[in-house]
Computed example of a mutant assay.
Amino acid sequence: MRKFRVTVNGTSYNVEVQEEIKSVTAVPCGQAVVPAAPAVAAPSPVAAPVEIAAGDSAIKAPMPGKIIKVLVKKGDKVKKGDVLMILEAMKMQNEITSPASGCVTLMNVANGKSVKPGEVMAVIG
């Protein structure tokens, strides 16, 4: 078991995840088993840091996932609690809401974009 601390919508949770055990294929006696080489992912480009002005509210990804629907765009006025986008994670659709009333000053995601935990998805000013 591996232990993680996960924050969802500002609430922290301690979770335990059981690692999956890969199945073993039987081989005839006397033959060696050669493990497959691990897959190496291509490095992803590093995104430029997002600057947030004093008084602005950054909406950060609470978990890794994929944006399946963006409901607002830069320049839109929103109220506290308005749904800004839908984040799909672990086959669940999560509504990402505005933490404050204001204007969308930055929309850093689009439909189909994958996000990492803590990544700034939008800014409300």
Rank of each mutant, 00 (worst) to 15 (best):
S98N: 12
P38F: 03
V115G: 02
V46C: 04
G55W: 08
V33M: 05
A42H: 12
G102C: 06
A36H: 07
A41G: 01
S57W: 13
K116S: 14
Q93E: 15
D56R: 15
T25H: 14
S57K: 13
A42I: 08
C103S: 14
C29T: 13
E119G: 09
G65C: 03
N108G: 02
D82H: 10
V72Q: 05
A32L: 14
K66Q: 15
I86L: 15
P64M: 05
P99E: 03
M121T: 03
M92H: 02
A110P: 05
V70E: 07
N14Y: 09
K80F: 04
G112D: 05
D82I: 09
Q31F: 10
K74I: 10
T105I: 08
G65A: 02
M92A: 03
V115I: 07
N94K: 08
E16D: 13
A47C: 14
K22W: 11
N94P: 06
A39T: 12
L106V: 09
V40E: 01
Y13E: 05
E88P: 05
V78T: 06
M90N: 04
K69E: 15
E16M: 11
N14C: 03
V78W: 00
A42R: 11
K66I: 13
E19R: 02
P28K: 08
P35S: 07
V40I: 10
K66Y: 09
N111M: 09
P38K: 05
P117E: 15
V27F: 06
A122H: 13
K91D: 08
Y13S: 05
L71Q: 04
V46S: 10
C29M: 10
V40G: 02
V24M: 10
L71I: 01
T11A: 01
S23K: 12
Q93C: 02
V123D: 00
E19H: 01
Y13L: 11
S57T: 11
V33K: 06
V34A: 05
S101M: 06
V109G: 11
Q31Y: 13
C103E: 15
P28V: 08
G102L: 02
P45V: 12
E95W: 03
T105W: 00
Q93T: 04
K113Q: 15
G30W: 00
T25L: 13
G65T: 00
A53T: 05
P64Q: 08
E119H: 00
I86S: 07
G112Q: 03
V104P: 10
Y13P: 09
A61R: 03
V24Q: 13
C29S: 13
V72E: 03
V78K: 02
A53I: 01
I124P: 04
C103R: 14
P43Y: 00
A41Q: 01
K91H: 09
K79I: 07
K80C: 10
K116R: 09
V24I: 10
A26K: 07
M90Q: 06
A37Y: 07
Q93M: 11
V120W: 05
E119C: 03
G102V: 09
E20N: 12
S12A: 15
I21P: 00
Y13W: 03
V104K: 09
M85K: 09
P38L: 01
I52Y: 00
A89W: 00
V27E: 01
L71S: 10
A37K: 13
T25G: 15
P28C: 00
L87H: 05
A53S: 14
A54E: 15
L106A: 12
K74F: 09
A48M: 13
G102S: 02
K74L: 07
V50S: 04
Q93K: 11
K22Q: 07
